[in-house]
């Protein structure tokens, strides 16, 4: 039985439709990602799953329960980390964790969570004195302090530096290895690629693709991207005339060429024929980023 089941979810705010039609299922032990540009309906979808909003249509079931009707039972079993949810300025890290632990029948050990999230030496620090990354880690710790079976994490690593982001990913993998099912909202492709078993790409309130990150990448048109610098100004037509080339762009002193798999040979030989020397040549394969752009028409960090 799936742990989370969303069928034809529909949600409006007055005239504005936030979620048109979203269906997805999350299996036990999975890390499931919801990807999408801002305003696509990601947060509204998970808020309906968390029981914070009432859907206008469709159904949501979590651990076989209804997030509204069985709210009391689900709150014991589902941990939620919301975007932009803060704490009082003067509460201390240790106090907050112990307070939230006291709400649950079978909480995790706050001391252990502080160790795992690197908050040990911030135990007596007031919330307002924490850095953005520390606040974020505390927020994750609060979502996990109830020993949940399901964790819903909205924009898990926003505001974290790259090292902290990788540490958080490792932590989340550890949480999953402990048997927790994780529903993750993100707009970082790298995060989805690294962490998620499956990903639903949501755009304008609808699911436009649902698959493993690797399958989404391979489903996007096979593409390569070449980046290089040239010794002399380049007439773009030299390259755009090649059948293998799709686009030619200039980014600063770099030329970026995209095209099919056989593009490399065609481009380098054409440039050589015109005595144009190429420096710093790099070949990149399609990533989830490319798949995302193809599926939604925007870059993931477009705001």
């Amino acid at each position: 039985m799936p742990v989370i089941e969303v069928t034809n979810l529909h949600k409006r705010y007055r005239e504005q439709v936030a979620v048109h039609d979203v269906s997805l299922t999350v299996e036990a032990g999975e890390i499931f990602g919801i990807l999408g540009p801002n305003g696509a309906g990601k947060t509204t979808t998970v808020e309906c799953v968390a029981g914070l909003r009432v859907p206008d249509g469709g159904g949501v079931s979590v651990l076989g329960l209804d997030p509204r009707r069985d709210a009391d039972r689900l709150r014991e079993r589902v941990g939620v980390q919301l975007q932009e949810s803060q704490l009082p300025d003067r509460i201390r890290v240790g106090e907050a964790l112990e307070l939230y632990a006291s709400f649950y029948r079978d909480p995790a050990d706050p001391e252990r969570l502080m160790d795992e999230l690197g908050l040990r030496d911030k135990r007596d620090a007031a919330y307002k004195k924490l850095s953005g990354g520390q606040k974020q880690r505390l927020s994750i710790a609060l979502a996990l302090v109830g020993n949940p079976e399901v964790a819903i994490l909205d924009e898990l690593t926003t505001g974290l530096d790259p090292q902290a982001r990788r540490d958080t990913w490792r932590l989340i993998e550890g949480v999953r290895d402990g048997g927790v099912t994780i529903l993750l909202v993100t707009h970082f492709m790298e995060e989805a690629e690294r962490l998620c078993d499956r990903v639903a790409v949501i755009d304008a309130g609808r699911v436009v693709a649902l698959d493993s990150p690797a399958a989404l990448v391979s489903r996007a048109a096979p593409r390569q991207r070449l980046r290089f610098r040239v010794s002399v100004p380049l007439d773009d037509r030299l390259l755009t005339d090649l059948p293998e080339v799709v686009t030619v762009e200039h980014r600063g002193s770099q030329v970026v060429v995209t095209g099919g798999d056989s593009m490399l040979q065609a481009v380098t030989s054409t440039l050589a024929r015109h005595q144009i020397t190429v420096a710093d040549l790099r070949v990149e394969q399609s990533t989830l980023d490319d798949a995302f752009v193809e599926l939604t028409g925007h870059r993931p960090d477009d705001h």
Partner: peptide, 16 residues
Amino acid sequence: TYRERGVLRRLATTPA
């Protein structure tokens, strides 16, 4: 302030 900063909202996701 508690409402604006989502303190109330976070509590709404817990058994409290």
